[in-house]
Design a protein around this nucleic acid. Sequence first.
DNA 1: TCGGATTTCTAGCAGTGCTAGAGTCACGTC
DNA 2: GACGTGACTCTAGCACTGCTAGAAATCCGA
Lengths: 189, 189
Amino acid sequence: MATRERKERERADRHRRILAAARELAEDQGWDAVTTRRLADRIEFSQPVLYGHFPGGKDEIVAGVALEGFAELATTLRAAVDDAGPGGAPGALIAAYLDFAAAHPAVYTAMFESAALPFAHDDTPAPLTEGFAVLRDVLAPAPTAEPGRYAELAWATLHGLATLARAGRLPPDGAAERLALAVTLLAPE
Amino acid sequence: MATRERKERERADRHRRILAAARELAEDQGWDAVTTRRLADRIEFSQPVLYGHFPGGKDEIVAGVALEGFAELATTLRAAVDDAGPGGAPGALIAAYLDFAAAHPAVYTAMFESAALPFAHDDTPAPLTEGFAVLRDVLAPAPTAEPGRYAELAWATLHGLATLARAGRLPPDGAAERLALAVTLLAPE
DNA sequence: TCGGATTTCTAGCAGTGCTAGAGTCACGTC
DNA sequence: GACGTGACTCTAGCACTGCTAGAAATCCGA
C-alpha cells in the first residue's frame, strides 16, 4: 500500500538527483564531463537506471536540465520586472537576462545548443514560452510593429550578447557599456 | 630537389582536403558525423596522418574550418557592401550576414561554438577581425557612442538571429519581417 | 643497389553511449 | 509461513569515439 507511494517518492527523488547531478557537473567541468558513468556514480546507481528515468538517454537528460533552466529564467525575469519601477522595467529585464546567462553558463548552453526541444510549435512546453512572454510584454513598444516580431529581435540581441560574451568573443570590460547601449536601443527614451 | 617541392605541394593539398572533407561532412550530416576515421577514409589515408597535419587533433581541424569560415564571411560582407549603393549598404550587410549563416550552418557553428579560437585578444588572427571591421564601418553611426561598442551590439543581434533561427527557435515565416525590423533598428533612417 | 631517413600503417588504449541478459529482491497468493 | 511472480537493478559487453606507440613500407641520395 504505502510501499507503492514510497517507491514513487524514491523514483521522483532519483529523477531530480539525476538532473541535479548533470547540472552540477556541467557547471563545474563543462558538458563534456557529463557522462552516463559519472552520473550513475553520483546518484549511486548503475548506468541502466538512468535509462529507466530518461529513455532518450543522455540527450533527454540534457533536455531536462534545459527545461528546468527555462522555468527558472522565466521566474527570474518576472521577478526582476516586478521589483523594478514602471520606468525601470526594461533595464531590469535586460540585466536579469544577461545575469542569468552569465551565472549559469552550462544551463544556458543546454537551453540553446544541446537540447532538441520543441520550439515555436503548438506543442511547445509552457516554460519555454513564458520567458519570451515577459520579454514581449515589457520590451515591445506599441507603435513600432507586431510586438511579437519586435520581441523576437530583442531576444536575439540578448541571446547574441549572452552567447558571444560566454565564448569570450566580446571584451569583458565593455560589459556595462554594452548593457546601457542595449537598453537605449531596445527600450528607447 | 624538385622532389621536395612536390612533397610540400602534396602535403598542402592533403591539408586542404582534410578541411574540405570535414566541412562537407559537417554540412551534410552534422558535426557529430565528423570522426577521425571517416575523415581518414575520405582522404584515403590512415588516421594518424591527420595528426601530422593537425597536432591538436579534431579540435584543431574544426578550428581550421572555422578560420576559413571567418575569412569567407569577411569577403562576403565586404562584397555585399561594395555592391550596394551608399544608402543600401546596411541592409545589404545585414542580409548577407544572415544569408551566410543560413547557407553554411555547420561552418557557422564551428565558428562560434565548437572552435576555441583566440578572440578579442592581441594575437587574434586577421580573418577573425575583418568581418567585425566591416560591421563597424557600415553600421556604427557617428553620434551614438563608441563605434566599437555599437558594432558589438549589432553583431550580437545578427548572431542571435542567426543562432535562434538555425535552432528552430524563431518562426520561419517571419524571417523577412525580422530582417526589415533589424535594418530599421540597427541602421535607422 | 643499397643504407638511412622519412612517411605511413596496423594494432591497440582508455573512454563514450547504450543494452541484453542474469541476478536479486519484495510482493501478493495459497 | 512457503512459494511463484513481477519489478527492479546489476554485470558484462557491444560498437563506437579520439588518439598514439611501434612496426612496416616507401622513397631518396649516394
